[in-house]
Amino acid sequence: MKLSDISPKAGSKRRRRRVGRGIAAGQGASCGFGMRGQKSRSGTGTKAGFEGGQMPLYRRVPKLKHFTIVNPKNFTIVNLTQLADLAAKTEVTLSSLMEKGIVTSNDGPLRVLGEGEVTVPLTVKAAGFSKSAQSKIEAAGGTCEVLGKSKG
């Protein structure tokens, strides 16, 4: 048997510490709080974030309305009004739109939005469609194919 193996009996309770009741009690006079100072006084301590009179961190930092997104998702946006001039059964992709001059810069994957109307059937291949754009293209007899769909 070792000293570290000794433990109190199951269910036994330890008496509460009575501080400030003399040197024999083990926590006499200053009750373990030291001599003087803010932390030795009675009552509550300081509130969270208090830095002893120094301007606290939450007041030093600038308050921003928003934070910039670290990895933003950028899309090349095309509305249906821009696709209305295309011939019937045309295959619409980002590269084909750049060749025709409808889109001038590649800002990311193609996303089709539903502003405007389409009267001819088109085969549109894009990374995303708004619900209104998809319904208008399919109502005109065209098809919508989502490219690069992530699994999971």
Results as ranks from 00 to 15, higher is better:
Ile6Cys: 10
Ser7Phe: 03
Lys9Phe: 11
Gly11Phe: 07
Ser12Pro: 01
Val19Trp: 12
Gly20Asp: 01
Gly22Asn: 08
Ile23Pro: 03
Ala24Pro: 00
Ala25Gly: 14
Gln27Pro: 09
Ser30Lys: 08
Cys31His: 10
Cys31Asn: 04
Gly32Ala: 02
Gly32Phe: 01
Gly32Glu: 01
Met35Leu: 14
Gln38Arg: 11
Ser40Glu: 14
Gly43Cys: 00
Thr46Leu: 14
Ala48Ser: 07
Gly49Asn: 02
Glu51Lys: 15
Gly53Cys: 07
Gly53His: 09
Pro56Tyr: 01
Pro56Leu: 00
Tyr58Thr: 11
Arg59Asn: 11
Val61Leu: 13
Val61Ser: 04
Pro62His: 12
Lys63Arg: 14
Lys63Trp: 09
Leu64Asn: 03
Lys65His: 05
Lys65Ala: 08
Lys65Cys: 00
His66Asn: 08
Phe67Glu: 15
Ile69Met: 08
Ile69Asp: 11
Val70Gln: 14
Asn71Lys: 15
Pro72Met: 04
Asn74Gly: 02
Phe75Leu: 08
Phe75Gly: 00
Thr76Leu: 08
Ile77Cys: 05
Val78Cys: 05
Asn79Phe: 07
Gln82Ser: 13
Gln82Asn: 12
Gln82Cys: 02
Leu83Tyr: 00
Ala84Arg: 12
Asp85Trp: 01
Ala88Trp: 00
Leu94Arg: 06
Met98His: 02
Met98Ser: 02
Thr104Ile: 03
Thr104Phe: 04
Thr104Asn: 11
Pro109Val: 06
Leu110Asn: 09
Arg111Gln: 12
Val112Arg: 04
Glu115Asn: 12
Val118Arg: 05
Pro121Trp: 05
Thr123Arg: 05
Val124Tyr: 11
Ala126Lys: 03
Ala126Asp: 06
Ala127Pro: 03
Lys131Val: 13
Ser132Val: 08
Gln134Gly: 12
Gly142Tyr: 03
Lys151Leu: 11
Gly152Gln: 03
Gly152Tyr: 01
Gly152Lys: 02
